[in-house]
């Protein structure tokens, strides 16, 4: 079999497989996805009362003010920086456990939490993998109850109730780790 023959066969098979895997397969899954699961397929966007999107239930947001539960530190500020406004972003610190820069970052963060009378927890000190982690641990949410209670004038027991409602639990009681969805929780604060 000579090379030219193989070349022509290759070109034709590449075109055929390209149509199958890069056109038909994406087209079909897109069609089914948009029809059956249109909310998920478009990014699980959360709308406010006016119908404006205010976030996605799967993507975290930076919360820094006293009136909200704080989220985890992010290496990319949850894609709110102006230079990525058109495209979005994701990213991590990529600091090695032996890198002193890691401690230079963690120490002031722990200090800041202690000043607000919050016992530092691991997830509030370590930056997440995606920079968009929508969750904090239950422990980290509960540690912030006294601060929120003071800022909002809400009963701690009421806050605990809202936290429980905002937990994204394990799927089928076994898959994944539970976490408190911070956007869901803070939205429920505003609604009350």
């Amino acid at each position: 079999m000579n090379i030219v023959q193989d070349l022509f066969k290759s070109i034709r098979i590449v075109v055929a497989l390209w149509i199958l895997t890069a056109v038909l397969y994406p087209l079909l899954t897109w069609g089914i996805g948009q029809t059956l699961f249109s909310n998920q397929a478009n990014g699980s966007l959360v709308l406010n009362a006016q119908g404006q999107p205010i976030g996605s239930s799967l993507i975290g947001q930076p919360f820094k003010t006293d009136r909200y539960f704080w989220s985890r530190p992010s290496a990319i500020e949850y894609a709110t920086l102006p230079e990525v406004a058109k495209t979005g972003a994701s990213g991590a610190s990529n600091l090695a456990p032996s890198n002193l820069a890691l401690f230079d970052r963690i120490k002031p963060e722990a200090q800041r939490l202690r000043q607000s009378n919050i016992k530092p927890t691991a997830d509030m000190l370590y930056t997440s993998g995606s920079g968009l982690d929508p969750h904090i641990s239950l422990e980290s949410a509960q540690a912030q109850i006294p601060r929120l209670s003071q800022a909002r004038g809400m009963e701690p027991s009421r806050l605990q109730e809202l936290i429980n409602q905002a937990i994204d639990d394990r799927i089928l009681w076994i898959l994944g780790e539970p976490g408190v969805n911070v956007l869901k929780l803070n939205l429920s604060l505003d609604q009350k």
Partner: peptide, 25 residues
């Protein structure tokens, strides 16, 4: 897709967060 992974040809979504920042999703 049913579990939340997007499948859309729409571009990046710009939203205003609860604290008023502009987030690009």
């Amino acid at each position: 897709i049913a579990s939340g992974i997007p499948e859309t040809w729409a571009g990046t979504a710009q939203v205003t967060t609860l604290e008023g920042a502009t987030q690009a999703i």
